[in-house]
Design a protein around this nucleic acid. Structure first.
Lengths: 230, 230
DNA sequence: CCCTCCTGATCGAACGATCAGCCGGACAAG
DNA sequence: CTTGTCCGGCTGATCGTTCGATCAGGAGGG
């Protein structure tokens, strides 16, 4: 709230259940909120320690270095995210449209349930040395490929006909990532509604027979459009 | 390139033409690339000066503080972005679908033409004290409202029927922002193609008669979908 | 002669990390 | 139950480095 560029206004920093030993978890939760608000480089280990109620030296009993604290957050976030996408894909196997709806819904849902964690994973990954970032990047590539394969299957079957497959996949991914930037727990929009809406939007983007219809049906309400003044 | 989490791999840091005096411009260009790769807090005054070929003290002849360097970059980026959106909206006034296509195309085009600047504007805005961030936030609000009004006009006329107007606007904005993360000059995808594709995707998301059609037409190719194994 | 742009030196503060040492619960031996 | 030992988790002090910023002064074109 003190921040102008509202990075996750009222949302409480939150981690998936059972992701670390209690001692380390307190540190991770403290670091999570601070990394999201001030960035990795903008947060000192003294800040983290103070937030966790510890002396700064105590952090090194749980983590090898400041880098490793971020690496652990990034690992937790990417594994939770990728696991949800895979479960959503397996649970709806067969029908590409239902599968796209499910996977994109899970993607959006993750960013709504863990907006702080998602923000750190997306915005601070670059601060990690290559060796520590590699596992997260691998999971990212897998998630993108999962989405791409669903769209390609739909194209094969004729139910999908997106403009430029790869860009459509990138756009679907991008709109979901952005959920973390505006979703807050006290919003009047529920998590289920977010997931459903984003699933619907993704299907609309990919679905066949969309462009063609512009010439046949959508004409009706457009009559008064040509050359309107101002 | 040395960075694992590819923040703008091969792209040259670039600013819109004529945005500052030559001396200050060299500093801004140096800071732009460094802020994008290492973040605002991860970049020191000495880093910027070295990249610009100056002693660190020389920066203070052009800018009041490190904050003001970022503030100027953020101002340039937001003004260029908002200007393009307004011009695109005025150039296609009247027809909501054409207007949405144009504005979203301009949005995507900006992020493809200035991916480094867009990255800094989006990811480092939070590092600015409220007073310096305020103008950019105001322009952001205006841009979002512009998009929202186009969609609402389309709904009034019956050509648009998106699920949850506000979330659709947020999703359209989000997918365009993400372009900056993957677009590179040496890519096989051209800027015009990006703009056209994103315009088309936005229209598909908003267009009326999309959901309803699922029951009437799209059935044809879906026959073999039910319960396919694995 | 002044004004703009610049340099090298330097300020105090904050940085990531390391150290010796203290504390308290776990645990085996008596 | 008491005793002795250990070890994970912690503290306060401190290391050398780097941070953003300031200073007096030099260079040089108008």
């Amino acid at each position: 709230m003190a921040d102008a560029a509202s990075r996750l206004q009222a949302t409480e920093p939150d981690l998936p259940a059972g992701s670390a030993r209690p001692g380390a978890r307190r540190v991770l939760e403290a670091a999570l909120g601070l990394f999201a608000r001030h960035g990795f480089s903008g947060t000192s280990i003294r800040d983290i320690a103070a937030e966790a109620g510890l002396a700064s030296a105590a952090l090194y009993a749980h983590f090898e270095s400041k880098d490793h604290v971020l690496a652990e957050l990034v690992r937790i976030g990417h594994e939770e995210h990728h696991g949800r996408l895979r479960r959503a894909a397996l649970g709806t196997a067969g029908d590409p449209e239902q599968q796209l709806r499910g996977v994109v819904g899970a993607h959006a849902r993750f960013h709504a349930e863990y907006p702080v964690l998602a923000t750190v994973c997306n915005n601070e990954l670059h601060a990690l040395p290559p060796a520590l970032a590699a596992p997260a990047l691998a999971l990212r590539a897998q998630s993108e490929q999962l989405l791409q394969e669903i769209v390609e299957l739909g194209i094969e079957r004729g139910v999908f006909d997106p403009p430029h497959t790869w860009m459509t996949v990138a756009a679907i991914g991008g709109m979901g990532i952005r959920v973390a930037a505006w979703f807050a727990a006290d919003l009047e929009i529920g998590i289920d509604e977010v997931a459903d809406t984003y699933g619907e939007l993704a299907v609309r983007m990919a679905r066949a027979d969309n462009t063609a219809r512009a010439d046949s049906t959508a004409r009706a309400a457009t009559g008064a459009s040509e050359g309107a003044p101002t």
